[in-house]
Write a protein that binds this DNA or RNA. Structure first.
Ligand code: FES
Ligand code: FES
Lengths: 142, 142
DNA sequence: TCCTTTTAAGACTAATTTGTCTTAAATATA
DNA sequence: TATATTTAAGACAAATTAGTCTTAAAAGGA
Protein backbone atom coordinates (compact mmCIF):
# COMPACT_ATOMS: atom_id res chain seq x y z
CA UNK A 1 0.00 0.00 0.00
CA UNK A 2 0.97 3.59 -0.53
CA UNK A 3 1.52 4.51 3.10
CA UNK A 4 1.90 2.81 6.46
CA UNK A 5 -1.19 2.01 8.47
CA UNK A 6 -0.16 4.64 10.99
CA UNK A 7 -0.11 7.20 8.20
CA UNK A 8 -3.60 6.33 7.07
CA UNK A 9 -4.82 6.66 10.64
CA UNK A 10 -3.12 10.05 10.86
CA UNK A 11 -4.86 11.32 7.74
CA UNK A 12 -8.23 10.08 8.93
CA UNK A 13 -7.77 11.68 12.33
CA UNK A 14 -6.60 14.94 10.78
CA UNK A 15 -9.68 15.04 8.58
CA UNK A 16 -11.86 14.45 11.60
CA UNK A 17 -10.18 17.09 13.73
CA UNK A 18 -10.32 19.68 10.99
CA UNK A 19 -14.03 19.11 10.52
CA UNK A 20 -14.88 19.80 14.15
CA UNK A 21 -15.54 23.44 14.87
CA UNK A 22 -14.06 23.23 18.36
CA UNK A 23 -10.39 24.11 18.56
CA UNK A 24 -9.57 21.15 20.72
CA UNK A 25 -10.90 17.60 20.35
CA UNK A 26 -10.16 14.83 22.87
CA UNK A 27 -8.27 11.90 21.34
CA UNK A 28 -10.74 9.55 23.00
CA UNK A 29 -13.53 11.07 20.92
CA UNK A 30 -11.52 10.60 17.73
CA UNK A 31 -10.59 7.01 18.52
CA UNK A 32 -14.21 6.22 19.37
CA UNK A 33 -15.61 7.84 16.25
CA UNK A 34 -13.05 6.41 13.87
CA UNK A 35 -12.71 3.08 15.67
CA UNK A 36 -8.97 3.28 16.01
CA UNK A 37 -7.14 1.98 19.08
CA UNK A 38 -6.89 4.90 21.50
CA UNK A 39 -3.32 4.28 22.58
CA UNK A 40 -2.02 3.67 19.11
CA UNK A 41 -3.76 6.75 17.80
CA UNK A 42 -2.37 8.80 20.67
CA UNK A 43 1.14 7.76 19.71
CA UNK A 44 0.54 8.69 16.10
CA UNK A 45 -0.97 12.07 16.91
CA UNK A 46 1.98 12.81 19.16
CA UNK A 47 4.14 12.66 16.07
CA UNK A 48 1.91 15.19 14.34
CA UNK A 49 2.17 17.39 17.41
CA UNK A 50 5.94 17.10 17.42
CA UNK A 51 5.89 18.17 13.78
CA UNK A 52 3.77 21.20 14.72
CA UNK A 53 0.87 20.07 12.60
CA UNK A 54 -1.30 19.71 15.69
CA UNK A 55 -1.27 21.33 19.12
CA UNK A 56 -2.22 19.46 22.23
CA UNK A 57 -3.52 20.32 25.64
CA UNK A 58 -3.41 18.13 28.72
CA UNK A 59 -5.98 17.85 31.45
CA UNK A 60 -9.73 18.26 31.47
CA UNK A 61 -10.94 19.99 28.31
CA UNK A 62 -7.69 18.81 26.82
CA UNK A 63 -7.14 17.14 23.47
CA UNK A 64 -5.60 17.96 20.13
CA UNK A 65 -6.34 20.59 17.53
CA UNK A 66 -4.95 21.98 14.33
CA UNK A 67 -1.85 24.08 14.86
CA UNK A 68 -2.50 26.15 11.76
CA UNK A 69 -5.33 26.89 9.34
CA UNK A 70 -6.67 23.77 7.64
CA UNK A 71 -5.77 25.17 4.23
CA UNK A 72 -2.13 25.13 5.27
CA UNK A 73 -2.08 21.45 6.23
CA UNK A 74 -1.38 19.30 3.19
CA UNK A 75 -1.57 15.54 2.95
CA UNK A 76 2.10 15.67 2.09
CA UNK A 77 3.02 17.23 5.43
CA UNK A 78 1.17 14.45 7.25
CA UNK A 79 2.75 11.68 5.22
CA UNK A 80 6.15 13.27 5.76
CA UNK A 81 5.59 13.48 9.51
CA UNK A 82 4.58 9.83 9.86
CA UNK A 83 6.33 7.90 7.11
CA UNK A 84 9.34 10.12 6.49
CA UNK A 85 10.87 10.96 3.16
CA UNK A 86 11.10 7.46 1.67
CA UNK A 87 7.96 7.94 -0.31
CA UNK A 88 9.13 11.21 -1.77
CA UNK A 89 12.71 10.52 -2.67
CA UNK A 90 12.54 6.76 -3.15
CA UNK A 91 13.41 4.98 -6.37
CA UNK A 92 10.72 2.80 -7.93
CA UNK A 93 13.16 -0.12 -7.79
CA UNK A 94 14.14 0.74 -4.19
CA UNK A 95 17.66 1.55 -5.22
CA UNK A 96 19.54 3.78 -2.87
CA UNK A 97 18.00 7.09 -3.81
CA UNK A 98 16.21 8.22 -6.89
CA UNK A 99 18.40 10.67 -8.76
CA UNK A 100 18.67 12.09 -12.25
CA UNK A 101 22.43 11.67 -12.06
CA UNK A 102 22.27 7.92 -11.45
CA UNK A 103 18.93 6.80 -12.77
CA UNK A 104 17.59 3.29 -12.85
CA UNK A 105 16.06 2.03 -16.12
CA UNK A 106 12.53 3.03 -15.10
CA UNK A 107 13.47 6.45 -13.80
CA UNK A 108 12.45 8.51 -16.86
CA UNK A 109 9.06 6.86 -17.10
CA UNK A 110 8.40 6.93 -13.39
CA UNK A 111 9.37 10.53 -12.70
CA UNK A 112 6.37 12.26 -14.28
CA UNK A 113 3.95 9.83 -12.65
CA UNK A 114 5.50 10.44 -9.27
CA UNK A 115 5.41 14.18 -9.93
CA UNK A 116 1.64 13.97 -10.34
CA UNK A 117 1.33 12.02 -7.15
CA UNK A 118 3.39 14.59 -5.29
CA UNK A 119 1.36 17.42 -6.77
CA UNK A 120 -1.76 15.76 -5.45
CA UNK A 121 -0.32 15.33 -1.97
CA UNK A 122 1.05 18.88 -1.92
CA UNK A 123 -2.01 20.62 -3.25
CA UNK A 124 -4.53 18.63 -1.27
CA UNK A 125 -5.22 20.27 2.08
CA UNK A 126 -7.55 19.51 4.96
CA UNK A 127 -9.93 22.40 4.31
CA UNK A 128 -11.07 20.79 1.07
CA UNK A 129 -12.87 18.05 2.97
CA UNK A 130 -14.35 19.84 5.93
CA UNK A 131 -17.86 20.11 4.56
CA UNK A 132 -17.88 16.53 3.30
CA UNK A 133 -16.78 15.21 6.66
CA UNK A 134 -19.26 17.40 8.51
CA UNK A 135 -22.11 16.19 6.31
CA UNK A 136 -21.47 12.69 7.63
CA UNK A 137 -22.46 11.30 4.27
CA UNK A 138 -18.99 9.94 3.63
CA UNK A 139 -17.33 6.93 5.18
CA UNK A 140 -14.73 7.66 7.81
CA UNK A 141 -14.41 4.16 9.23
CA UNK A 142 -14.61 0.43 8.42
CA UNK B 1 6.60 2.88 0.13
CA UNK B 2 4.50 2.00 -2.84
CA UNK B 3 5.15 -1.74 -2.85
CA UNK B 4 6.63 -4.40 -0.62
CA UNK B 5 10.34 -5.05 -0.76
CA UNK B 6 9.63 -8.41 -2.35
CA UNK B 7 7.72 -6.65 -5.10
CA UNK B 8 10.59 -4.31 -5.86
CA UNK B 9 12.92 -7.29 -6.05
CA UNK B 10 10.50 -8.99 -8.42
CA UNK B 11 10.42 -6.00 -10.76
CA UNK B 12 14.19 -5.70 -10.76
CA UNK B 13 14.62 -9.38 -11.47
CA UNK B 14 12.01 -9.30 -14.22
CA UNK B 15 13.80 -6.40 -15.87
CA UNK B 16 17.06 -8.31 -15.69
CA UNK B 17 15.62 -11.52 -17.08
CA UNK B 18 13.89 -9.75 -19.93
CA UNK B 19 17.12 -8.04 -20.94
CA UNK B 20 19.06 -11.29 -21.29
CA UNK B 21 18.82 -12.80 -24.71
CA UNK B 22 18.95 -16.38 -23.38
CA UNK B 23 15.56 -17.91 -22.75
CA UNK B 24 16.58 -19.24 -19.38
CA UNK B 25 18.67 -17.47 -16.74
CA UNK B 26 19.85 -19.18 -13.54
CA UNK B 27 18.50 -17.50 -10.40
CA UNK B 28 22.00 -17.57 -8.96
CA UNK B 29 23.16 -15.27 -11.75
CA UNK B 30 20.31 -12.85 -11.07
CA UNK B 31 20.90 -12.80 -7.33
CA UNK B 32 24.63 -12.24 -7.89
CA UNK B 33 24.13 -9.47 -10.41
CA UNK B 34 21.41 -7.65 -8.50
CA UNK B 35 22.83 -8.40 -5.06
CA UNK B 36 19.65 -9.92 -3.74
CA UNK B 37 19.63 -12.86 -1.33
CA UNK B 38 19.49 -15.99 -3.48
CA UNK B 39 16.98 -17.86 -1.35
CA UNK B 40 14.69 -14.93 -0.87
CA UNK B 41 14.76 -14.12 -4.56
CA UNK B 42 14.04 -17.74 -5.39
CA UNK B 43 10.94 -17.65 -3.25
CA UNK B 44 9.77 -14.44 -4.91
CA UNK B 45 10.38 -15.72 -8.43
CA UNK B 46 8.46 -18.88 -7.58
CA UNK B 47 5.43 -16.68 -7.11
CA UNK B 48 5.92 -15.18 -10.56
CA UNK B 49 6.23 -18.69 -11.95
CA UNK B 50 3.04 -19.77 -10.21
CA UNK B 51 1.34 -16.74 -11.79
CA UNK B 52 2.63 -17.85 -15.21
CA UNK B 53 4.67 -14.71 -15.67
CA UNK B 54 7.86 -16.76 -15.67
CA UNK B 55 8.68 -20.35 -16.58
CA UNK B 56 11.28 -22.34 -14.75
CA UNK B 57 13.46 -25.29 -15.48
CA UNK B 58 15.24 -27.49 -12.95
CA UNK B 59 18.61 -29.11 -13.22
CA UNK B 60 21.77 -28.15 -15.10
CA UNK B 61 21.04 -25.39 -17.64
CA UNK B 62 18.01 -24.66 -15.53
CA UNK B 63 16.74 -21.31 -14.36
CA UNK B 64 13.86 -18.97 -15.03
CA UNK B 65 12.69 -17.15 -18.13
CA UNK B 66 9.81 -15.08 -19.38
CA UNK B 67 6.69 -17.13 -19.98
CA UNK B 68 5.42 -14.70 -22.62
CA UNK B 69 6.71 -11.88 -24.77
CA UNK B 70 8.19 -9.01 -22.74
CA UNK B 71 5.64 -6.61 -24.23
CA UNK B 72 2.89 -8.63 -22.61
CA UNK B 73 4.32 -8.44 -19.10
CA UNK B 74 3.20 -5.26 -17.38
CA UNK B 75 4.41 -3.89 -14.07
CA UNK B 76 0.85 -4.26 -12.91
CA UNK B 77 0.88 -8.02 -13.42
CA UNK B 78 4.04 -8.30 -11.34
CA UNK B 79 2.71 -6.12 -8.53
CA UNK B 80 -0.51 -8.11 -8.57
CA UNK B 81 1.36 -11.41 -8.35
CA UNK B 82 3.48 -10.35 -5.38
CA UNK B 83 1.47 -7.81 -3.40
CA UNK B 84 -2.05 -8.79 -4.33
CA UNK B 85 -4.94 -6.49 -5.08
CA UNK B 86 -4.69 -4.16 -2.08
CA UNK B 87 -2.84 -1.54 -4.05
CA UNK B 88 -5.42 -1.53 -6.80
CA UNK B 89 -8.67 -1.59 -4.97
CA UNK B 90 -7.60 0.05 -1.72
CA UNK B 91 -9.10 3.21 -0.31
CA UNK B 92 -6.69 6.07 0.37
CA UNK B 93 -7.86 6.08 3.97
CA UNK B 94 -7.58 2.26 4.17
CA UNK B 95 -11.29 1.89 4.63
CA UNK B 96 -12.70 -1.47 3.73
CA UNK B 97 -12.74 -1.14 -0.02
CA UNK B 98 -12.71 1.88 -2.24
CA UNK B 99 -16.07 2.19 -3.93
CA UNK B 100 -18.10 4.85 -5.68
CA UNK B 101 -21.17 3.65 -3.83
CA UNK B 102 -19.67 4.26 -0.38
CA UNK B 103 -16.94 6.82 -0.88
CA UNK B 104 -14.73 8.34 1.78
CA UNK B 105 -14.30 12.12 1.78
CA UNK B 106 -11.13 11.97 -0.33
CA UNK B 107 -12.48 9.49 -2.87
CA UNK B 108 -13.40 11.98 -5.62
CA UNK B 109 -10.04 13.70 -5.49
CA UNK B 110 -8.04 10.51 -5.18
CA UNK B 111 -9.70 8.54 -7.94
CA UNK B 112 -8.21 10.34 -10.95
CA UNK B 113 -4.74 10.31 -9.40
CA UNK B 114 -4.96 6.61 -8.78
CA UNK B 115 -6.25 6.12 -12.31
CA UNK B 116 -3.06 7.68 -13.65
CA UNK B 117 -0.98 5.47 -11.45
CA UNK B 118 -2.82 2.39 -12.65
CA UNK B 119 -2.48 3.50 -16.25
CA UNK B 120 1.24 3.73 -15.74
CA UNK B 121 1.47 0.28 -14.22
CA UNK B 122 -0.77 -1.23 -16.89
CA UNK B 123 0.85 0.38 -19.88
CA UNK B 124 4.42 -0.07 -18.72
CA UNK B 125 5.83 -3.38 -19.93
CA UNK B 126 9.19 -5.05 -19.67
CA UNK B 127 10.14 -4.61 -23.32
CA UNK B 128 10.36 -0.84 -22.84
CA UNK B 129 13.49 -1.22 -20.75
CA UNK B 130 15.38 -3.99 -22.46
CA UNK B 131 17.82 -1.75 -24.31
CA UNK B 132 18.44 0.44 -21.28
CA UNK B 133 19.18 -2.55 -19.10
CA UNK B 134 21.40 -4.12 -21.76
CA UNK B 135 23.40 -0.92 -22.13
CA UNK B 136 24.40 -1.28 -18.47
CA UNK B 137 24.39 2.49 -18.13
CA UNK B 138 21.52 2.41 -15.67
CA UNK B 139 21.59 1.40 -12.04
CA UNK B 140 20.14 -1.99 -11.27
CA UNK B 141 21.48 -2.35 -7.74
CA UNK B 142 22.45 -0.47 -4.56
C1' DT C 1 22.33 -45.63 -13.93
C1' DC C 2 24.48 -42.22 -11.01
C1' DC C 3 26.10 -37.83 -10.02
C1' DT C 4 25.72 -32.95 -10.27
C1' DT C 5 23.16 -28.90 -10.84
C1' DT C 6 19.29 -26.21 -10.24
C1' DT C 7 14.42 -24.96 -8.79
C1' DA C 8 10.48 -26.19 -5.22
C1' DA C 9 8.82 -26.30 -0.77
C1' DG C 10 8.60 -25.31 3.69
C1' DA C 11 10.45 -24.84 8.45
C1' DC C 12 12.69 -21.57 10.91
C1' DT C 13 14.79 -16.91 12.47
C1' DA C 14 15.22 -11.83 12.37
C1' DA C 15 13.49 -7.35 11.71
C1' DT C 16 9.90 -4.14 11.38
C1' DT C 17 5.39 -2.53 12.10
C1' DT C 18 1.35 -2.52 14.71
C1' DG C 19 -0.93 -2.53 18.89
C1' DT C 20 -1.35 -2.68 24.31
C1' DC C 21 -0.46 -1.25 28.79
C1' DT C 22 1.47 1.30 32.67
C1' DT C 23 3.14 5.40 34.70
C1' DA C 24 4.25 10.36 34.64
C1' DA C 25 3.17 15.13 33.80
C1' DA C 26 0.08 18.86 33.02
C1' DT C 27 -4.19 21.38 33.82
C1' DA C 28 -9.09 22.63 34.78
C1' DT C 29 -12.19 22.99 38.48
C1' DA C 30 -14.20 22.07 42.86
C1' DT D 1 -4.90 22.52 47.47
C1' DA D 2 -6.78 18.11 46.08
C1' DT D 3 -8.89 15.48 42.56
C1' DA D 4 -10.14 14.00 38.17
C1' DT D 5 -9.09 14.17 33.42
C1' DT D 6 -6.33 14.12 29.60
C1' DT D 7 -1.88 13.88 26.80
C1' DA D 8 3.30 12.22 26.94
C1' DA D 9 6.48 8.72 27.14
C1' DG D 10 8.12 4.47 26.88
C1' DA D 11 8.23 -0.57 27.96
C1' DC D 12 6.28 -4.51 26.22
C1' DA D 13 3.60 -7.97 23.15
C1' DA D 14 1.57 -9.48 18.79
C1' DA D 15 1.44 -9.60 13.94
C1' DT D 16 3.46 -9.05 9.60
C1' DT D 17 7.22 -8.91 6.47
C1' DA D 18 11.87 -10.05 5.30
C1' DG D 19 15.41 -13.23 5.10
C1' DT D 20 17.96 -17.92 6.02
C1' DC D 21 18.55 -22.69 5.79
C1' DT D 22 17.63 -27.54 4.92
C1' DT D 23 15.73 -31.15 2.23
C1' DA D 24 13.21 -32.86 -1.84
C1' DA D 25 12.41 -33.22 -6.70
C1' DA D 26 13.58 -32.67 -11.48
C1' DA D 27 16.73 -32.85 -15.32
C1' DG D 28 21.12 -32.92 -17.94
C1' DG D 29 25.25 -35.40 -18.87
C1' DA D 30 29.06 -38.79 -17.85
S1 FES E 1 16.46 6.11 -9.86
FE1 FES E 1 14.87 4.63 -9.91
S2 FES E 1 13.12 5.84 -10.09
FE2 FES E 1 14.70 7.36 -10.09
S1 FES F 1 -13.43 5.09 -0.73
FE1 FES F 1 -11.63 6.06 0.00
S2 FES F 1 -10.56 6.40 -1.83
FE2 FES F 1 -12.39 5.48 -2.56
Amino acid sequence: MLFSKACHYAIRAALYISSRSENIVPIREISDELEISFHFLTKILQQLTRHHILTSLKGPKGGVGLNKPAEEISLKSIVLAIDGQDFFEGCLLRLDKCSDAHPCPIHDEWKPVRRQLLNFLESTTLDQFQSKVKSKKFRMKV
